[in-house]
Nucleic acid binder design. Structure first.
Lengths: 216, 216
DNA sequence: GTCTATAAAGTGATAGAC
DNA sequence: GTCTATCACTTTATAGAC
């Protein structure tokens, strides 16, 4: 009886799964869940589709793993950024920067998540409810505490978070349109710098934390 | 020889096409292009799939007509909103309001367009290049002229437009996630009022047009 | 002008070989 | 433990009937 080769730090299975997941995230980001065929994913990963289904028994299992990885990565970067004890300005700056960095470094992850939400989150609503919503609500609560303490101007905290989310996420999701406007092959680091400056400025001005040109 | 009944103001064909397009936009918004089957669209529209393909010879033709209608509606609402002669504050307020109204009244249209862009605009890039990009560039040029004339603070006009687009569009595209945060069945008119207030405030504060709480 | 039978290719999934 | 031949079904599209 042969025993599984546990001595390897990264098993053969782990390597194959990583290859599959890498292609899967690209395909799901382009075509969404229903639009992606496991045959295409398998072909680009260099496997037969039947072989892929040995590692991921169903298409849904593959999709959920992709989305799990997306959330893991995102949550690791955003975890407890909003600390009510820290300076509001610093927190807001860090928040915008972290979210923009994710859009720049993991645009495919962002797009898979966006596609799922736009389509109504039919396959992942439970996980969003469990892992994302509490985090967003906590961030909103921090904003509201700052307002109550008079540290920032009284704005609608919920919609402020929606705004930050929307502006930063769009640099991954709507990159195709932005590159057409900017007449570029792809978004450059300088574009993300410009975006960070503008978004940070807007947010800080909105909550009264930035010395802004006030009309006389 | 029978002649086509041109006397009818709305032909039988127009009515059937409208029914089909109504179901198609819903289906494309949920599942994207590849994820939508014309059989499903036909069934919900009360036709056989073969009959649907009499009116729209290919799936691509149906998809392009749906996207054409989306753009027609959107362009009609946004046409020449940015008039360099008008008051910048009024224009920005009207711009945000018009875009938010579209998100509220035509969320499915917004989502079909968003899905196409996120997937890389593989089937509609030409039309976006032709009909959308020039309009966005014109809006940016107006913002830049205001800056040159000293009417608004010197911000990055391109990214300001990206920000407005992102914030307003997200109330259609990310509605599924927003309703989870807000614990609602669907977004209410009051949510759009709150959104309009916050977004307008952010934009006007960013360009120095709103008397904002300045730190002492 | 409107609708239907049929085809040709592709889908996710399983049972079983190495 | 890893991989493949095969299946039952759905996809878009066409050729042709009413």
């Amino acid at each position: 009886m042969t025993i599984a080769p546990v001595k390897h730090r990264v098993s053969h299975r782990d390597k194959v799964e990583a290859t599959i997941l890498g292609e899967a995230v690209r395909q799901f980001a382009e075509c969404g869940y229903e639009g992606t065929s496991i045959a295409t994913v398998a072909e680009r990963a260099g496997l037969s589709k039947q072989n892929l289904m040995y590692y991921f028994p169903t298409k849904q299992a593959l999709y959920q793993r992709v989305l799990d990885n997306v959330l893991d990565d995102w949550l690791a970067r955003m975890a407890s950024l909003a600390d009510p004890g820290k300076d509001p300005g610093d927190v807001l700056r860090a928040y915008v920067r972290a979210k923009l960095t994710f859009s720049r470094e993991q645009p495919l992850a962002s797009r898979v998540y966006a596609m799922e939400v736009i389509g109504g989150a039919k396959l992942y609503a439970d996980q969003i409810r469990r892992r994302v919503i509490p985090l967003l609500r906590a961030d909103i609560a921090v904003f509201e505490r700052w307002i109550a303490e008079g540290k920032i101007a009284p704005v609608n905290a919920t919609h402020l978070l929606f705004a930050v989310w929307a502006m930063t996420q769009s640099y991954a999701d709507f990159a195709a349109q932005m590159t057409l406007v900017l007449d570029r092959e792809q978004l450059e680091p300088s574009d993300f710098d410009d975006a960070e400056r503008l978004i940070t400025g807007m947010v800080l001005a909105a909550v009264g934390l930035q010395e802004n040109p006030c009309p006389p």
